[in-house]
């Protein structure tokens, strides 16, 4: 088996939490820590922080890498990483941008969004993935004879918090090669502030695709009225994509991060991108499918049709 590397994303000089979990993903593969790779411009502090966790850190420092433009990072990685290696990423919007193409350039296998590692058998890395939004899982064998690029779902492994590695940093900036690219980063545009701020609400009545129709949004609004000032209506992404509610109400990795006292997930299946936005509080799930993955994340579950259940609940609360 080739050497194991972990690519560490960092923003504003801080290493990404999920990247810290890759050390334990590497141990599940080879028994050893991975060699970490950080790229960027003026990244000594980040490389030193990585060396507190990983025994070996490679840094690639170049002005062209100042913003993690996936096309440029991919070029650098393809030059720095030897063929046959196993390269770990945290599965996120950066890995989706960089990792599939890198696997082609390295001549390696590619597998994304894995939620478990069962070790190595011969030239097969045995991993677990999910399909259908987590309703079923699959065992997958990845041929690592020519190496592999593996994107690991955040939260699958724990991070190493001990900071006791005392690692060494090796400068491979000279190996990065030609970093010109046909894709140029311009800027980050932040979302416009909405009229609502769901992050301040004590109770979120959160609706998903199970609300079925735009006119049924009213059922959630009525419940919010009945529950009073502390409640607000939020939603999953398909509701925003359909333009039934404004983007400021979306909970999840590409929306808001919320920490209410009570989160009522109504007709939401419980994808990891949605759950990634819920950082605390009692989760109450209402879903007509008793096997919906949301029931694994929730503390309280109700199997019901929300089109009938929400008005019934509203009525009872109004009577109180």
């Amino acid at each position: 088996m080739g050497q194991v590397f972990a690519y560490l994303v960092h923003r504003d000089g801080v290493l990404d939490d999920a990247a810290m979990e890759l050390i334990n993903a590497a141990k599940a593969i080879s028994g050893d820590a991975a060699t970490a790779i950080v790229t960027g411009s003026g990244i000594d502090a980040v490389a030193t922080a990585a060396a507190a966790i990983f025994p070996n850190v490679i840094k690639v420092d170049n002005a062209a890498l100042a913003y993690p433009n996936a096309e440029v990072v991919r070029k650098a990685l393809a030059n720095v990483i030897p063929a046959g290696s196993i390269v770990l990423f945290a599965h996120n919007t950066f890995s989706m941008d960089c990792a599939p193409g890198l696997s082609i350039k390295l001549g390696a296998s590619f597998v994304s969004d894995i939620v478990g590692i069962d070790g190595v058998e011969g030239s097969a890395l045995k991993v677990i993935r999910q399909e259908f939004g987590g309703e079923v899982s699959t065992h997958v064998n990845v041929d690592i004879a020519g190496g592999a690029v593996v994107a690991v779902r955040p939260g699958t492994f724990t991070a190493d918090e001990s900071k006791s590695a005392g690692g060494t940093v090796t400068d491979k900036s000279a190996d990065a090669g030609d970093l010109s690219a046909n894709r140029k980063f311009i800027e980050i545009v932040e979302p416009e502030a909405g009229d609502v701020d769901i992050t301040k609400a004590d109770v979120l009545i959160s609706i998903g695709r199970g609300i079925e129709d735009e006119e049924n949004i009213e059922l959630a609004m009525n419940l919010k009225e009945a529950m009073g000032n502390a409640a607000e209506v939020s939603c999953s992404r398909p509701i925003v994509d359909a333009k039934w509610l404004e983007p400021a109400r979306q909970v999840g990795t590409s929306g808001c991060t919320v920490k209410p006292k009570v989160y009522m997930a109504c007709g939401i299946s419980g994808s990891f991108q949605h759950l990634g936005g819920i950082k605390g509080g009692l989760i109450i799930a209402i879903n007509k499918n008793p096997n919906a993955p949301i029931f694994q994340a929730a503390s309280v579950g109700i199997v019901a049709n929300i089109i009938e259940f929400l008005p019934a609940l509203t009525e009872k609360i109004e009577e109180m």
Partner: peptide, 19 residues
């Protein structure tokens, strides 16, 4: 190079208290 071996339903944790 990437082969699905089988499908399975993961062992469920405690999960929610169902009402």
């Amino acid at each position: 190079g990437v082969k699905k071996v089988d499908y399975f339903v993961p062992e469920k944790g405690e999960g929610a208290e169902m009402l």
